[in-house]
Design a binder for these strands. Structure first.
Lengths: 332, 332
DNA sequence: ACGACGTCTGTGAACGTTCACAGGCTCGTT
DNA sequence: AACGAGCCTGTGAACGTTCACAGACGTCGT
């Protein structure tokens, strides 16, 4: 009835528990005879190590917490999380680390997260979509726990290492493409200006458009479909003759598309529309979106790799930036 | 430098660790004086309980594992996971349980999950989108660990409790609506026939259409956009004059929409299109999808509630089914 | 023949809790 | 005054590991 312990294995194999522990942990200095006896005993008894006991003496947690920092409602609006979570589970699993999820939407949440990690319940932290100015970042840094972010944390790039796609370069690709297609009045709908995707995609856009990227042609959204619609409406009122709009996310682009159709503009004939992310909505819209693909799986993989290096004792790791890819479909 | 232990708190408060443990766990029979002294000592030392030690003596894990059973590639194609994960984190957090994520895409994964839960590393299991015939279900049941599924597991409804939306009723709502709109040749694109969404949405459809729901008007997809396109193509070849199609997911509906446009059919004038899920793509398509909304958050909440009851010692819980809502937009 | 060294094994202590138990104190009741 | 019934507290043992240490054995070089 009770789960077998290391003692049961030792007894079944006729060997002391010290040696059992050694084979469990792959130590050298174990005789072949002892090894096979123990392995058979493990199989017979169905023994599985008790992590609580192990972690207690090792003073480790055996897990990494992924902190989701979006405000509640918007959480996961972004389909990108999925890939990242999946990748993280896999990579961490290879190292026998489990992934526990937490939310840090408000101060109470953050307090809970902090208690959790300070209490030694996690060996490291994976930050997702943390906004600039989030108090969690400094608190985490102060607690000296290994932490990395998936995507840069604006203003804290030197505090907390990260892996990210080349947001700025990707935006540049799109802007250059729109220009190369002969578009002249190119507007942009950005993301929130406290996120790397918000800031850096605008920077890339401005890199290409130069002073043509005037304030009149810039509107800000919050990644949602509705904000894309509204931003597009404001843009059309202000500059009725724009012939292209670059949206910082596919979801906002789908909103913009909606407004453009309402306004009777044809896409891409009258107005070209560019997105960003290459998420599942990019092929659901009409016309399908020309967009910038992020190497999500690779970003996630690199994020975890950085964390593992920190966990292995590295006292510094360099941020990683991965290239994006322009995906041309019908909308531009 | 070292994290304070319960001994440190006891010393700081001038009280034995037994009493400290009592206030930590909210036992009655602690004098007010002792309580305040200990609470101050806890605050001063910044003490946080060590869960490994606690769980070791309590013989518990302090966590619940959420098992994602999709094959790798399709994992998370469904935006629905997001809500469920978020809800589960919250509800479990209230009970001081953490949520750890695992994937069970192939046999190796399943083996890992089994080892993990059998090893006592989790107090309960939350199954997501488990297909019928998944060996994990019986293995889990045999190990007598509390487990519930979010959405029914086909063929195992009596083995593993679940909370789900009324798939069949929702499909019926949509079918009735299409009929009420005067549609006469109504086709359906189902999901995979080893999932509740695949089977029961078809059943609901057949409930309404009766023998009119002939095989000629049924095609099967696998939830993806591409499968929606292909199924729609086959449908149009076989029955060129259909005037409505009910897709078992919004994503497949967006694929169908694409094919219909290619074929020159107007939506909804020539062909009405209905979806299911009310996911983010439902408002990204053109025209926006008339669809069936699932009460995702409630389903997740109920799923967790059932698990908590099991964790609290209930030896049986009844499955829960929640009503859906028809959302009428422009596509039908 | 001897010591040194490498290989292998067993043992005791420690990790930080909780829990059962025993006992002390303070009332109110007889 | 004695007793019992709550209330409150401290102590020791246990949970299942790992790790350092000590020691046994064999081999090899001198």
């Amino acid at each position: 009835m009770k789960r077998p312990t290391i003692h049961d294995v030792a007894r079944a194999a006729g060997i002391s528990r010290g040696t059992v522990s050694r084979v469990l942990n792959g130590d050298r200095y174990v005789s072949p005879a002892a090894r096979v006896a123990i392995e058979r005993a493990i199989a017979e008894t169905g023994y599985v190590v008790n992590r609580n006991a192990r972690n207690l003496v090792r003073q480790r947690a055996g897990s990494v917490v992924m902190v989701l920092s979006e405000p509640h409602e918007k959480l996961f609006e972004d389909p990108n999380y999925s890939t990242t979570i999946r990748t993280a589970i896999r990579r961490l699993g290879e190292r026998d680390l489990s992934l526990v999820m937490m939310i840090a939407g408000d101060d109470r949440d953050r307090e809970q997260v902090l208690r959790y990690v300070r209490g030694g319940h996690a060996d490291g932290v994976l930050l997702m979509s943390t906004h600039s100015g989030d108090p969690l970042v400094d608190a985490l840094h102060a607690s000296r726990l290994p932490a990395v972010s998936c995507g840069a944390v604006i203003g804290k790039e030197s505090v907390i290492p990260y892996a990210a796609c080349d947001e700025r370069g990707g935006a540049r690709q799109m802007a250059e493409y729109l220009v190369s297609q002969g578009r002249r009045r190119i507007a942009m709908i950005t993301g929130p200006m406290d996120t790397p995707g918000g800031i850096q995609r605008l920077e890339g856009f401005a890199d290409v458009l130069g002073r043509k990227a005037s304030q009149r042609l810039i509107e800000h959204g919050d990644w949602t479909h509705a904000s894309g619609e509204q931003a597009m409406t404001r843009l059309l009122e202000r500059v009725p003759d724009i012939d292209a709009v670059f949206c910082a996310s596919d979801v906002m682009a789908s909103g913009a598309l909606h407004t453009l159709r309402q306004a009777g503009r044809r896409v891409p004939d009258d107005v070209a529309v560019g997105g960003f992310d290459d998420s599942s909505v990019a092929i659901s819209t009409h016309p399908p979106l020309t967009t910038v693909r992020q190497p999500l799986a690779e970003v996630a993989q690199e994020t975890v790799r950085l964390l593992l290096e920190l966990l292995d004792g590295a006292d510094h790791v360099d941020p990683v930036t991965l290239p994006t890819e322009l995906i041309v479909r019908a909308s531009a």
